[in-house]
Write a protein that binds this DNA or RNA. Structure first.
Lengths: 332, 332
DNA sequence: ATGAAAGCGCTAACAC
DNA sequence: GTGTTAGCGCTTTCAT
């Protein structure tokens, strides 16, 4: 039979309360007694039940992570940042994928709340006005990643996607490109929308005509959209809303017997690991995914400990990474 | 204040037991009463506490996933298989990374047991004899992925790594290669050891001299070891113990002005997504990672439900994927 | 410094 | 069919 606190108490000839005190490092337990309890615990190979403890204290040491798809190479490093930070703070982490399905996402949030998670890190783009309001009444602290939200009691951490796109486009313009197309992400994903806006505005400001093709953030959509782009527009450079599509675009370019960057330059976004493994290596915007994760958990921890109320949007710095996939038109 | 079952009972003018019954879909609650309870639940926006429920039933609907590093591209799809299957069966999933640190791994296992997880999916290679015995006394069902274990009450699911390596090497030999080197993985990782043995034995059986260089399974180690291999051995083909190293090797070959497969053929293992995105696309052994995950959870579920006792090793089928990174020597 | 006892929110006999 | 009641294993006043 699995030992409980009562068994330990009996073996050590003390009360349950005392056992509980040593379990919680309460300093007012006398050394000798503490020894006895510790020995009993050892002898019985006793492990306290955190379920029971949670029920008694009405707190759990768990947090939940809800994300679209761990299989998308951008997320594992974010998730790792979250896990590491959570672990460091003594939390264990629930994880669940949503595939960007709003209904599923809701269900998972509620399920995690039922599990009494202390807080939730939510990576979502499908949140509509109504859902957000429901969440507000939830009492469980939530922090959003990669999506800012105004006037809501949620913390959020992300980068400035608009400015990131702006820098990417300026970089391409600086190289002499004028026919720069944009491989955009889904219209319902906020980061994709911001990047697109940054692209369009920057093109316009430079008196260049924007040309956008919208994809799904997947590699396959990158190859497919790229084919269309070549047929319909003939760009000399592409700014893709994420690296996966950029990689797909590159693939299609080579498949058609052209080269990167000699014929077409490609610029991505995210800086997933493969960017440095592809040939040519992909120039891109580096997003501090790991740090976003760590920051999210810190914000959550503050909220859970009641250190801070109100909401806070933190914007982390991105970085333009110059590698091999872009080249000036003049050098052709 | 957060509503509990008592509040619902009062509002619906029934007993807690009745509320509990409708919560658990007990059919013997009369329609009208059930309606009333449901309305009360709705009105109070009541969510049952699974903590309390778990304590009362002495079961939890959680399982734990312990893996080396979610950031390694092989693991996300395995994890996804596990999450999907867990979700389908009504479990929520804990996740934790170990970085292959045996001490940390132990701690995490115990921590999860304290959390009262119903079972654990463990992807580990560092398990020594003693640890395994400790785990045996744990009562919490454990299923191992990518590592078989003999005479232990653990289930395990994996592929036949020895045979996979054998097929890879035969494939290369079949193309006319004789100077085939092996980029091996860490010596303490079972799958790496089996692949190496499969390589060595198959080479010997063909009267070819094996040449192995041991790496760490990382991309960087692939580039580094490949440099040494070229300098010290001059292979015409490489069988790498995983794709990441294969990709690194490919990178180094191009950096030195040589080509794949024209100068050196590369064969990987795992079939991570990037194998189909690299140029040339990587030939490799496809491991059914998603299916391994799903199977692991099914085994765990059986054990947790007491359907089956004793242990079971299941071996899933791998597949040789022919792409572009290998070429016959005669065609050079 | 230690113990007794009440409760955390739910389930599960058992009784009616 | 529904209510009563006794726990599940722990924490936490409150006494002593």
């Amino acid at each position: 039979m699995k030992p409980n606190i009562q068994h330990v108490a009996e073996l050590a000839q003390v009360s349950k309360a005392t056992v509980s005190r040593v379990l919680n490092d309460n300093p007012q337990v006398k050394g000798e007694i503490k020894e006895r309890v510790l020995r009993a615990i050892e002898e019985l190979n006793y492990r306290p039940s955190s379920i029971a403890r949670n029920l008694a204290t009405n707190r759990t040491n768990t947090i939940g992570l809800i994300l679209p798809d761990i299989t998308n190479p951008y997320f594992p490093v974010l998730a790792r940042g979250i896990e590491d930070a959570a672990h460091r703070l003594g939390y264990t982490l629930f994880i669940s994928n949503t595939d960007n399905d709003p209904k599923l996402e809701q269900d998972i949030i509620y399920k995690m709340v039922e599990q009494q998670v202390g807080g939730i890190v939510l990576i979502s783009s499908t949140l509509d006005e109504k859902t957000v309001n429901d969440l507000t009444s939830l009492r469980t602290p939530i922090v959003l990643c990669d999506r800012l939200i105004e006037n809501r009691p949620f913390d959020a951490v992300s980068i400035d996607n608009y400015r990131a796109a702006q820098e990417a486009v300026r970089y391409l313009i600086g190289q002499g490109h004028t026919r720069i197309a944009h491989l955009a992400g889904p219209k319902n994903i906020q980061s994709a929308v911001s990047r697109r806006a940054g692209y369009v505005d920057t093109m316009l400001a430079a008196n260049l005509e924007p040309f956008v093709s919208v994809g799904t953030f997947s590699y396959e959509s990158g190859v497919h959209q790229m084919g269309d782009l070549i047929d319909e527009y003939g760009p000399t450079a592409i700014f893709a809303a994420n690296d996966l599509m950029a990689l797909g675009a590159m693939h299609e370019i080579y498949r058609r017997g052209m080269r990167v960057p000699e014929d077409i330059s490609i610029f991505g976004c995210d800086d997933i690991a493969f960017c440095a493994m592809s040939r040519p290596m992909m120039s891109t915007i580096s997003i501090p995914a790991y740090q976003i994760g760590v920051t999210a958990v810190q914000l959550l921890d503050d909220k859970m400990k009641g250190v801070r109320s109100g909401s806070k949007n933190v914007i982390l710095e991105h970085k333009l990474i110059h590698r091999e996939s872009c080249n000036g038109v003049d050098r052709k």
